[in-house]
Computed example of a mutant assay.
Amino acid sequence: MPMTVETLHAHLAEAFPDAEIAIDDLAGDGDHYRARIVSNAFQGLPRVRQHQLVYAALKGKMGGELHALALETSIPAAGG
C-alpha cells in the first residue's frame, strides 16, 4: 500500500521538528515523491549523510510503502 503525503510528512516532522518540509507527489500515485527539507540537523554534514538521516527517519519504509523519493536537503539560510 502506498504511503500518503500526510504519513511521509509526519515521519519527517518527527525526525526533524525544526524543519521546513515541502512534499510533491510526482506521479499522483502515492509512490513517487520529492521532499525538500530545510533543517539545522543537516549543519556540517555532507549531502550523503543528510540523505541517510532522512532515510533513517522513514523507519525502513523506503523501498516498501515508499517506492521512490527524490531528496533536496539543506540548512536554513543565514539570517533568514
Rank of each mutant, 00 (worst) to 15 (best):
L66N: 01
A78E: 15
Q52S: 14
D18H: 02
A56E: 12
G30K: 13
E65D: 14
L8D: 00
T73Q: 07
H32M: 05
V5N: 10
T73K: 07
G63M: 04
A35Y: 15
A70V: 09
G63T: 03
D29L: 09
V54M: 12
E65G: 12
I37W: 13
V38S: 08
V48D: 12
V5F: 10
A15N: 09
A19N: 02
I75H: 13
V54N: 13
D31A: 14
L53G: 13
P17S: 01
A22P: 02
R34A: 10
R36F: 14
L69Q: 03
A19I: 00
G30F: 09
Q52G: 13
A13E: 05
L53P: 15
D25N: 04
G63F: 08
R34Q: 13
F42T: 04
S39V: 03
A41H: 12
L45R: 15
P46T: 03
L66H: 06
Y55Q: 13
S74K: 13
F16S: 01
L45G: 07
A56V: 08
Y33N: 08
G64L: 08
L8H: 02
T7W: 05
R34V: 04
P76S: 03
I23M: 00
N40R: 11
L66T: 02
H9I: 00
R47W: 12
K59A: 07
A22F: 07
A35C: 05
A56F: 14
G60Q: 08
E6V: 01
A68Y: 07
L71S: 09
E14D: 08
A10K: 07
L66E: 00
A13R: 09
A57R: 15
A56C: 11
A22L: 04
I21E: 00
G44N: 03
L66S: 02
N40G: 11
A13K: 11
G60N: 08
A68V: 01
L26C: 07
E65N: 10
S74R: 15
A41Q: 11
E14G: 06
T4L: 07
P76K: 06
E20K: 05
S74I: 02
A22D: 06
V54Y: 15
D29A: 08
G60V: 06
V38Y: 09
R36I: 10
L26G: 03
D29E: 09
P76L: 04
H11N: 01
Q50Y: 10
A35D: 10
A78L: 13
D18E: 02
G44T: 02
L8C: 00
F16H: 04
P46A: 01
L69K: 07
R34K: 12
E20N: 01
A41E: 09
H67Q: 05
A70Q: 10
T73H: 10
I21N: 02
F42A: 01
A56N: 14
